[in-house]
Structure formats: structure tokens, C-alpha cells
Design a protein around this nucleic acid. Structure first.
Lengths: 123, 123
DNA sequence: CGCGAAACTGGCCGGGTGGTCAGGACACCG
DNA sequence: CGGTGTCCTGACCACCCGGCCAGTTTCGCG
């Protein structure tokens, strides 16, 4: 009961690089006042590090495509996007088509999922 | 050039709770072999902690709805979901309807976006 | 044993979606 | 100047989606 005013910080590790994970584990494991979380244990904080990720140059989307993509992520229909952007539905469908192509998606739902996964958009 | 094969780990902090951030900064700042990142500096790893999160009670989705939701996030069509789950398209549409209702979404794209936002599914 | 919740199925239909073909305007670059 | 790329628009069409109606079974709970 002495000093439980410092409730021991539990740190979880989510490191892609095994070598880095080892070094961090060694470093952090010997720090007084915190300990590493057991697998599956609820942690106070998580140390994350994903290396040069699968994300080659943001897949080169044009500005207009990013506009359309953002509205798609809001759940907007082609008609809504057209109105919001001041262009015709045909043009929206054109951009959506390009998006599906570039993002390698089969539909608009798949497209926003892929985009969110690679950080192109923020959900 | 002695031992720069241990390139000093740079840690960034993304902690919601200021008190926890302070304690972690104090603890980690005095560990040899790593240092805290300056604001905006590219870090080796990031320590994240979002507290009691916006995610109370998971909005009570049934198991089947979670199944359908997961496949929706994959970009699967109703027909594909039906095949994958061994049920009819009508049933899929039934579950999708419930999903749209519970997630307060206007379409399947909106539904997976909402679900991802509140952590119901992992993108 | 009733009763509700969950899961499942069917049909119908208006509107949305994705693919395809075709075209024009503009800017940049070799 | 011709080529390339982006952006924009039009039309056509098969298919999908979401909402509506209705119905069945199975399960757990009081």
C-alpha cells in the first residue's frame, strides 16, 4: 500500500520491426514505474511503430478525385456529390470510376475502405 | 563513430490525458538509449493512449449483423455476402437494413464509415 | 405455455450505381 | 505543333441497393 499513488503504467507494444520491438522491450522493461503488458492485457498506453508502410506515394490522386473521395466517405450519393461540387452527376461518376480504378476497389464502399486503410483519407 | 549501431530511439507521445503524458515523459525522458521527439519530429515509434473512448456498449449489434458488417467493409455486394454466409440475398438486405438503422447511416458506405469511426470494426 | 427477439425468406419497385462509348476544353511539355 | 493529362459533359444499359409489404422458424425468458 505504500506508494500506490503511482499506479504503474502498463505499456503494450505494437511494433512491426522485431529488432526494434526487442530493443524497446529491453529498454522499457527495466524502467521503474512502468511495465510491459502481457498479451491481451488492457494497457494504459500503446507503443506503435509501423515502418515504411505499404503506401507508395499516396497513389497519386488528383485534387478532384480527393474531393469526390471525401464526400463518398461521408456516405454521399453521386447526386449529392454533384450538387456539393457544382458539377454534373456524369462527371462525378467519371471521377468515381477513376477512384475505383486507382484504389483497386470494386465499389464505392470498398474504395473508401481502401483509402482509409492507406491513410489517404481520415475516417 | 564508436557505437552508433544503436541509433537512439525517438519516441513521440500522443496521450489524451495530460497527467499521464507528464508521467510518461518524465519516465521515458531519463532512459538511456531513447529520447522523446520534438514536436513535428519524425519518430521511431509513437506512444498512444486514448482513454475511455467514445465507444460505449458497441451499439448492440447482433452476431449476424457483425458478420454482414464485416463483409460490407470488404466491399462485398449483397449477393456476395449471401453466398459467403449461406443465406439468401433477401436476408442480407434485411440485416443491412437493421445495420443502417442502428448505425444511423444512409447507405452501406456510410455504414462502414460510421462503424469504423466508433471502433465497431477494424478497417 | 405464450411472447418477444433474432434470424431467415419471398416479392415488388423506384432510384442509385458502375461500365462503356463518345466528345470538348484547357494546360503543360518536348 | 502534336502529344499527354486533367477535368468536364452527354447518353445508354444491366445490375445493385434500399425500403416496402408479408410470412416462417427457433430460441430464451417470464
Amino acid at each position: 500500500m505504500s506508494e500506490d499513488r503511482t499506479p504503474e503504467i502498463v505499456l503494450a507494444l505494437e511494433i512491426d520491426d522485431p529488432a526494434l520491438a526487442d530493443r524497446l522491450a529491453a529498454l522499457l522493461g527495466s524502467v521503474a514505474g512502468l511495465r510491459l503488458a502481457a498479451p491481451g492485457e488492457a494497457a494504459t498506453a500503446t507503443v506503435v511503430a509501423r515502418d515504411p508502410r505499404v503506401m507508395p506515394a499516396d497513389i497519386a490522386l488528383t485534387q478532384r478525385e480527393l474531393d469526390v473521395l471525401a464526400l463518398m466517405a461521408e456516405g454521399a450519393s453521386n447526386k449529392m456529390i454533384a450538387r456539393r461540387l457544382g458539377i454534373s452527376v456524369h462527371t462525378v461518376k467519371f471521377h468515381v470510376g477513376s477512384l475505383l480504378d486507382k484504389l483497386d476497389a470494386t465499389g464505392r464502399t470498398d474504395a473508401v475502405a481502401h483509402a482509409a486503410r492507406r491513410g489517404v483519407i481520415e475516417l
